[in-house]
Design a protein around this nucleic acid. Structure first.
Lengths: 142, 142
DNA sequence: TATTGTTATACTCTATAACTATA
DNA sequence: TATAGTTATAGAGTATAACAATA
């Protein structure tokens, strides 16, 4: 139960603010909020219902309802009525949303690449392994 | 200009979301937003004017004005009129704000400690060095 | 009765633009 | 004129509570 060094705590939080800052600025350049960016990321390989989506985003269902209203109005996602359960609907990315998601992914990777250029390839490999072990431990509480 | 591996990009962003998630939940437990948490962090060792504060938080001056309104109403900070310039005021943490900031700092360090317990001490040292070099490169655009 | 989702309402947070007071 | 800060206004994003439709 030894506490981590202040230097490590500091470095990690600074890193997290730097990364989130990149995401916020990139998203804003496309007139998207960070949550909308996360939404696109989630929908890349899923077609969740409202409740499932709310759980992924850690939002109330009413909040995701509004979020989807706005994203749908912009043509990024669409509601697909369920066949089996007439109360339910799933949320699916449109072609336009998918195109935007891919563009953002490229930009993110490019910016992060510039940041990581300061490390050698073996160092990157080492960093990847260390970070993966930490986030693995933080795995979804679900 | 080689792009970073998808695994590294992924791991770093997952880490940043995990860390920010911790901050958001801890702040919320004290009925604070993430920005208010950052405000307390900034005021630990500064007594900035409104414009300087807005720059630190990457906000418009009108936005920090409202932010300080709400924080002041909760007794966490106070506006101190400047002696030299009668238009200006600085923002200072109150004793109550300082107490809350310290409590949050402890909680953050404790939670992160649990997460980092998965690494050995030499690994933590290595991680600290690598992350510091990356964030150093991201240094303030100012 | 329970579940899926929406709507009504209220508050925080943010930006833009206009404003006040001082420099 | 320029600068420090506030105010007015509008919109996104959030939660709580009440609601409708279906299970």
């Amino acid at each position: 139960m030894s506490k981590p060094s202040p230097a490590l705590v500091d470095a990690l939080f600074r890193l997290s603010f730097v990364l989130q800052g990149h995401l916020v600025r990139l998203a804003a350049a496309h007139d998207l909020s960070l949550v909308q960016l996360r939404l696109l990321g989630i929908l890349r390989d899923r077609e969740p219902g409202m409740l499932e989506l709310a759980r992924h985003l850690e939002l109330e269902k009413s909040s995701s309802s509004g979020l989807i209203d706005r994203a749908e109005a912009r043509g990024l996602v669409e509601r697909v009525p369920s066949k089996e359960d007439r109360r339910a609907a799933t949320v699916r990315m449109t072609a336009r949303g998918r195109k935007l998601a891919r563009a953002l992914e490229d930009e993110v990777s490019r910016e992060l690449g510039a940041l990581l250029a300061v490390l050698s390839e073996p160092e990157r490999v080492k960093l990847t392994a260390l970070v993966e072990r930490v986030v693995e431990r933080a795995k979804p509480p679900a």
